[in-house]
Simulated scan of single mutants.
Amino acid sequence: MRVEIWSDIACPWCYIGKARFERGLAEFAGRDEVEVVHRSFELDPDRPKHETVPVVEILREKYGRTEDEARGMEEHVAATARADGLPYDTAHRDHGNSFDIHRVLHLAKDRGRQSALLDLVYRANFADERSVYDDEVLIAVAVEAGLDEAEVRAVVADRSAYADEVRADEREAAELGARGVPFFVFDRRYGISGAQPVETFAQALERAWAAREPQST
């Protein structure tokens, strides 16, 4: 059975949703027969490369909030993440164009290191004082995940590398009706939007698994 997860590393609910899904998967009896594939979705595709802004500023502009209200929104998400056992830093987070990060994640998929890299990118973006929108930070994180530095540098330098794969993921998300992330698709049978409770993911796994079984007569 395959579970596909559309996400963007800029999305805190994707960070939380991945952790909750994995807890649900750990409880699932057929977990060893589940293939998890992470797919690309850009929340801010039009932002120029290397143009980063503080997350609080993005929240203030996007939702028309005051700075204090925007900080409150970020603190609310942080509290949710921490309640799920995830570290979250609200003081230093920035926001930028994630296209290159998605391209490197596709390289990691080819090398069998996609989930490991995604975990490290999430940690750098949400818990550490490291901007993954910086090429050198992205390369360093990819190497930490087990990728070859020269190969990562080559992909980062060539913006056409894995670009088709990123765009294909995004087209598919649109075809499936995904308007935001995280978006989970279970064996192309059931879809779930958002960072749902662990129990919801566990139930979706069971439901999708049962749908694969031949029906008794």
Rank of each mutant, 00 (worst) to 15 (best):
Y190T: 12
A140M: 01
S40R: 08
I101M: 08
G146K: 08
D158L: 07
A211P: 14
A163D: 01
A83P: 04
D134M: 01
H102C: 12
T217N: 04
F186E: 03
R207H: 04
P87K: 13
D46V: 15
G72R: 06
K62C: 03
F21W: 12
P182E: 14
E61R: 11
K109T: 04
L25Y: 10
L117C: 03
G30T: 11
G96V: 12
A108W: 02
K62M: 06
R159A: 14
R103N: 04
D44I: 14
F99I: 12
D44Y: 15
A168F: 01
Y63I: 00
D46T: 15
D94G: 11
A124W: 04
D148L: 03
V53G: 13
I5L: 15
F99L: 13
N125I: 07
A168S: 05
R212G: 07
W6D: 03
V121D: 08
I101F: 01
P87R: 14
R39W: 10
E69N: 06
T90S: 11
S98W: 08
V155P: 03
S216G: 09
G30S: 06
E22S: 14
D110L: 07
V141H: 10
S115A: 14
L117E: 11
I139F: 01
D100N: 11
Q203T: 14
R2I: 01
A145H: 00
P54S: 10
P54C: 09
L25M: 15
S98F: 12
R23K: 15
V137P: 15
E129G: 08
P182K: 05
V37W: 01
R130L: 14
L86Q: 07
S160I: 01
R60W: 03
V166C: 09
V104H: 06
N125S: 14
A163M: 05
A195N: 02
E136K: 04
R153Q: 10
T217P: 14
D164W: 00
D128A: 07
D100S: 11
A108L: 06
V137I: 08
S216Q: 06
A78H: 13
G180M: 01
Y122S: 13
I16M: 09
L43S: 08
G85L: 13
Q203H: 05
L205Q: 01
D148A: 11
A168Y: 00
R2W: 12
R2E: 02
D100Q: 08
H102M: 14
I58K: 10
R60I: 02
L205N: 00
Y133R: 00
F21A: 06
D46W: 07
G194D: 13
T200F: 07
H95M: 15
A79F: 10
Y133L: 11
